[in-house]
Amino acid sequence: MSDRTAVARVGDVALWVVQAAVAAYFVYSGVMLFGDGLVGKFEEIGFGQWLRYLTGVLEIAGAIGLVIPPLCGLAALGLAGVMVGAVATELFLVENGGPVLPAILLAITLAIAWLRRDTILALLPGRR
């Protein structure tokens, strides 16, 4: 195995470790959205509790997708979209919002999507 191949393999393993950690966080976060702890926050947002459940489903689905090789890039892109909404919500709809964590998760999920862009492109028609 060449040095370049070994470095690429180590980088791939490191990226999978990051993906697994991010997936674990989103499972935790998604499950928390089904509890009563965030009802007040979603009342403050003003769109109704359906948004809380939808966000929980999207986070859990994205977490599952992050650990499925053909879907990991698309899942990261979807989670980035959820985090764009979270950052905007924390900045503009929640009094004393905290946009830092969603912004960090946005950056991480965008990085994963970029680094796994080959899996996204493979899903396009005629790209297999």
Rank of each mutant, 00 (worst) to 15 (best):
E44P: 00
G65T: 10
S2C: 09
G78L: 06
W114K: 04
T109H: 11
E43Y: 00
E44T: 14
A122S: 13
Q19H: 01
L51S: 07
Y28T: 00
L115M: 13
L66N: 05
A103G: 14
E44D: 14
V57T: 13
L38W: 03
G30M: 10
G11T: 02
A63V: 12
L101Q: 15
A61F: 04
L124E: 04
A107D: 00
L15W: 05
A21R: 02
Y28F: 14
L51V: 15
V22W: 00
I112W: 03
L58S: 06
L121A: 12
L15D: 07
P125K: 06
A6H: 04
L105T: 14
I120H: 10
A122G: 06
V100R: 10
F34P: 01
D3S: 04
L110Q: 14
L110T: 12
A8K: 11
L77S: 12
I68S: 11
G40W: 09
A24I: 08
G85Y: 00
L33K: 15
R117N: 05
R116C: 12
R127M: 08
A61H: 02
G62D: 11
G30A: 08
L15V: 01
M32H: 04
V84S: 06
A14L: 04
A122C: 10
A14I: 05
L115A: 15
T119A: 09
P70K: 11
A21K: 02
G78Q: 05
E59C: 09
E43D: 14
L115G: 15
G81E: 12
T89H: 01
T5Q: 13
A21L: 09
L71V: 09
G46K: 09
Y53F: 15
L33H: 12
A107M: 06
G73I: 05
L33C: 00
P69S: 11
F42D: 14
R116M: 06
L33V: 07
T89C: 09
V82M: 05
R4H: 02
A88F: 13
V100F: 15
P99G: 08
A75V: 03
G73K: 02
T89K: 06
T89I: 07
G98I: 11
G65N: 06
V10P: 02
E90H: 13
G98Y: 12
P102F: 08
R9T: 11
I120Q: 05
G62C: 04
V10K: 01
T5F: 01
F92E: 05
V13N: 08
V22R: 00
L110I: 07
W114N: 03
E95Y: 02
A61I: 05
P102D: 15
I60M: 11
A86I: 08
A8Q: 11
W16T: 04
V18L: 08
I68G: 15
V7W: 07
C72S: 13
L79R: 05
A61Y: 10
A88R: 07
W114P: 00
G73F: 03
G56E: 09
I120S: 06
G81L: 06
A88D: 10
G126R: 01
Y53P: 01
L38N: 11
L51E: 08
A113H: 07
V67W: 10
D36C: 06
L66R: 10
C72Q: 11
G97E: 03
W50A: 14
A113F: 11
P102C: 11
V31R: 12
A107L: 13
T5R: 15
T55E: 09
L77W: 02
A61L: 14
E59H: 10
V10Q: 10
A20T: 00
L74E: 05
Y28G: 07
G46C: 09
G56V: 12
G97K: 05
L106I: 01
